[in-house]
């Protein structure tokens, strides 16, 4: 890919998603776009970029941005984080709540994170009721997540074999998540950069390795909205190397934070 094309794509992604493509994501632009180029009947990635430049309609622009942003992921990614969720976070939240816990997987990609949470809840010694919301910028990713179908390769990354037997069944060449786990998750297309409102605060939000790519000003805005979307004392899980702003305190494993409970002003 020519440096000019890469620059054009980076500007496009930045304008439409607020994300700065650096390192790997920029480097793999060609690989990420070639399936889309094939689907669109373009002769090459360069040809696809040319079409976008000359006559890119909204649909095509959106498809290009989505293809550039989608992240490979796995079940139970970062075992330490899921161990902390299972041993500390979910039981303590469940003990303090009557109804189901509200959980948001923000930037859910193909849904492995959302279903990993569903499996944790189902496998807890005392089953924990979760309402899981999964959102992503990519409708293609959401569609796959909602289908609950994962390939032979996907189910062998991060998922213990006993988990596979307990929660999946074979479906042709793939594996399908059990209906009771699938029913725990609602899917919605959402760009974190846009304004969003939540009807009821969440008890736990996972937004891992998503905001790091944003410009600082946009990142601050997104954090502000996440903070508002969380109940006081609610938990925020970021990527292991990401840090939450002032309204949060570090709690346990790397990347796990709690929203501060507002202090009543001292007399």
């Amino acid at each position: 890919m020519s440096p000019g094309d890469l620059e054009f794509l980076c500007a496009l992604v930045r304008a439409r998603s607020g994300l700065v493509l650096t390192g790997e994501r920029g480097f793999f632009a060609e690989t990420r776009l070639s399936p889309l180029a094939r689907r669109e009947g373009a002769a090459s990635v360069a040809d696809l970029v040319q079409r976008v430049k000359i006559a890119g309609d909204d649909r095509l622009l959106r498809a290009v941005v989505e293809a550039m942003l989608i992240q490979e992921t796995s079940f139970f990614r970062d075992r330490e984080v899921f161990a902390t969720l299972a041993e500390t976070v979910l039981p303590s939240l469940a003990a303090a709540h009557d109804g189901p816990l509200r959980v948001w997987s923000a930037g859910c990609a193909f849904g492995q994170e959302a279903y990993s949470l569903a499996m944790l809840a189902a496998d807890a010694p005392q089953r924990i009721a979760l309402d899981i919301f999964a959102s992503d910028l990519s409708s293609a990713a959401l569609e796959k997540g909602e289908s609950g179908l994962y390939t032979h390769f996907e189910v062998q990354r991060g998922l213990p074999i006993r988990g596979l037997l307990r929660h999946f069944e074979p479906a042709d060449d793939a594996w399908r998540i059990a209906p009771d786990l699938r029913q725990m998750v609602r899917w919605r297309r959402l760009n974190l950069v846009d304004e969003f409102k939540v009807s009821k605060p969440f008890d736990l939000i996972l937004c891992r390795n998503v905001v790091d790519g944003f410009y600082p000003a946009i990142r601050a805005k997104v954090f502000e909205r996440l903070e508002h979307a969380l109940a006081p004392g609610g938990w925020l899980v970021l990527g292991a190397r990401e840090t939450a702003p002032d309204g949060f305190v570090a709690a346990g494993a790397a990347g796990i934070f709690r929203r501060r409970i507002a202090l009543v002003a001292a007399a």
Partner: peptide, 27 residues
């Protein structure tokens, strides 16, 4: 699934379905 369960009952700790790649072995 029944066959995989049989292998686990016989004392296997984990189970890889072929074909595999390096990522699966590592995982």
């Amino acid at each position: 699934p029944d066959r995989i369960a049989e292998a686990l009952d016989c004392g296997a700790d984990e189970y890889i379905m072929k074909p595999f790649d390096s990522e699966i072995i590592e995982a």
